[in-house]
Amino acid sequence: MTAVAAVRVPQRAFALDLRAVKIVVQRDLIRTLQDRTRFVAALVQPLLFLFVLGSGLGSLTRGATGSLDLKTFMFPGILATSTLFTAMFSAVSIVWDREFGFLREMLIAPVRRSSIILGKALGGATVATTQGILVLALAPFVHVPLTVGLGLTLLAEVFLLSFTLTALGLAIVSRIRQVQTVMGLMQVLLLPLSFLSGALYPLSNLPTWLSIVVRLNPLTYAVHPVRTAVFNHLQVSDSVRALLNPPITWNGWIVPTWLQLALVASIGLSLMAVAVRQFQQVE
């Protein structure tokens, strides 16, 4: 009789895994709704960068950016990096779950570990993208002409980016047992990641070392498509475009947007795989 019971109907197993993914995402959303303070607090830093730094430095750079407001230039970078904190926090929450025991409830369920981890990554991406909608609502204040098409493109790119970031976070935290440790680690990680991504400055005329580091940072390939999408909707001269949104090149070859996005997606999926394997090894 046991031999019979061992035979699985794949479709049913798939449906079960899907339900597990959905409930893990749903839990993340419920928890986010309950903790609106954190949700809003995560927006403070990007807004400071955009409106305070953007306005303050804007007077310095007025000559250099041509007709373009510095805030308009910074907007896509801010939109992309505003997801960093939230996505990483979603990953951190799994360490939190471990400390409070709830991770055990998830890991002993009769579903694949990958569905739990996938649920976590999608949950982080969903929360971060929701936050992206709030940042997107600021577009009119920084002279970005928002259309439905542009909005959806940006949100899709933000979703992809935050999925990859959450996966990165999950891969990092999988072996960490204390929330304090992971909080410290994230602090060390977040600023360099965003500073070295070209989110806050154009990629043209960089010193060689920085242009190399920026090209090695995966975040660069997520920020650039966002900025390109915005610049495609701006009325600016070619020289301003070349200065503020130059294409990313590898040894002189222009990396197309689709390849950048594919790169981000495959990094995200690989990190997911790493995270799943790591979590498989713990109890």
């Binding site: 339900r19 597990a20 409930i23 839990r27 369920a109 009769p110 579903v111």
Partner: peptide, 9 residues
């Protein structure tokens, strides 16, 4: 409990 019910299909 609902979370548990979903995880256990």
């Amino acid at each position: 409990l609902r979370f548990h019910a979903e995880l256990y299909g």
